[in-house]
Design a protein around this nucleic acid. Structure first.
Length: 357
DNA sequence: AACACGGGGGG
DNA sequence: CCCCCAGTGTT
């Protein structure tokens, strides 16, 4: 029996009842696939449920303000996904008569849909014979073939894409693709693969050679740099705090923050904060006490965020290097989307306010 | 081809 | 602390 047949039999018996598997509705398949990019299944499930309740159709999503969509996305990361999701919803709703393209080539034209996601939607929602390759499939294939090559190299990935196409199950491409990924998630795991439970163990070259732990081969990534960041909690006479919205492009694009920025080499944090608030908002501030300190790790660097209490000494805020700014009451902060580090600052604010009474 | 882009989970 | 994750877009 071919490994494809055995894999599908296993999938038919043991497939997890994930919320996006209840129907083949292209909208649900698309939404789940965008959320699942670089994000684990367990993390996605609650976001998917909430998002679908807020926006039951692609039309509803297209009609929503981007700020609301970003608020729904808050905490999921890679916020360009939310911006592209919104753009694609508007394209589908307004230009494509509410219908997603069925083919890989058609889907690839939409923002946020690359080779993987186009293959996933095309095969799962529309039954097209389209291959896909993600981190799970790379690992499964690298072990099946006991691949000694570095899978972080583009040429090696190209060969794995060829393999994905060659090995595709023509009658059930969507189920086969999902079965491969599910096998990688629950059995052929990165560490401690459960080979005893593997339905295609008999086909696995790495199992035969006992090299599972050494596959796939990857070049280690370099260590991440660290930065100190100063942020201002600028208060006015009415007890409101100043928040700024980041530009749409770049890190945490479109999210709100307590304004500030990275300290330059040798720069004192209060000096850094005064400089940043002058550059971004055109205000002169008086920097007060250190309110709280938060550690946070991004993919490519780590930060220590130092949040200072401030007051405006001179000037009114202007949107010089920010998309927008607002004075808000502490109770209103929950209406805006923030990155994790700033949410930790807000958490410290809430716990300290509770202690006052 | 290399890099930017979040955050949570697990060893 | 490290690595991993249902990748995409830009340069």
């Amino acid at each position: 029996m071919t490994f494809q047949t055995e894999l599908l039999q296993w999938y038919d018996r043991f497939a997890a009842p994930l919320p996006w598997r209840t129907t083949a509705d292209p909208y649900r398949v698309w939404l789940s696939e965008i959320m699942l990019q670089q994000t684990q299944v367990e993390t996605v499930i609650p976001y998917f449920e909430r998002f679908l309740a807020a926006y039951p159709t692609v039309q509803a999503l297209a009609d929503a303000p981007l700020d609301d969509v970003l608020k729904q996305w808050e905490g999921l990361g890679y916020y360009s996904r939310a911006r592209n999701l919104h753009r694609t919803a508007q394209r589908v709703a307004h230009d494509l008569n509410g219908q997603f393209p069925h083919t890989v080539d058609g889907l690839l034209k939409l923002p946020g849909i690359g080779r993987y996601t186009a293959g996933a939607i095309s095969s799962i929602a529309f039954g097209q014979a389209a291959p896909l390759l993600d981190g799970n499939v790379i690992r499964v294939f690298a072990r099946l073939t006991d691949l000694p090559d570095d899978v972080t190299q583009a040429a090696v990935k190209d060969r794995l894409w060829d393999l994905a196409e060659e090995w595709l199950h023509p009658e059930r491409p969507g189920d086969y693709n999902q079965a491969l990924m599910e096998l990688g998630r629950v059995v052929c795991k990165p560490r401690h693969p459960v080979c005893a439970d593997c339905p295609i163990q008999a086909h696995c070259q790495a199992f035969a050679h006992s090299t599972q732990a050494e596959r796939p081969v990857k070049t280690p990534r370099p260590g991440t740099p660290h930065y100190d960041v100063a942020a201002g909690m600028v208060w006015d006479e009415a007890g409101r705090v100043l928040i700024a919205q980041r530009p749409l492009d770049g890190l945490l694009g479109g999210l709100w923050e307590f304004p500030g920025g990275k300290a330059e080499a040798g720069e004192e944090l209060p000096d850094c904060l005064r400089r940043e608030l002058q550059e971004e908002l055109g205000i002169e501030v008086e920097v007060g006490e250190l309110f709280t300190v938060v550690q946070h790790a991004f993919t490519h660097f780590r930060i220590t965020l130092h949040a200072f209490t401030c007051r405006i000494a001179q000037g009114e805020p202007r949107a010089l290097e920010v998309r927008d700014w607002k004075w808000v009451l502490p109770d209103e902060l929950s209406q805006y989307s923030f990155g994790k580090a700033d949410r930790d600052v807000i958490k410290a604010l809430e716990s300290r306010r509770g202690m006052l009474f």
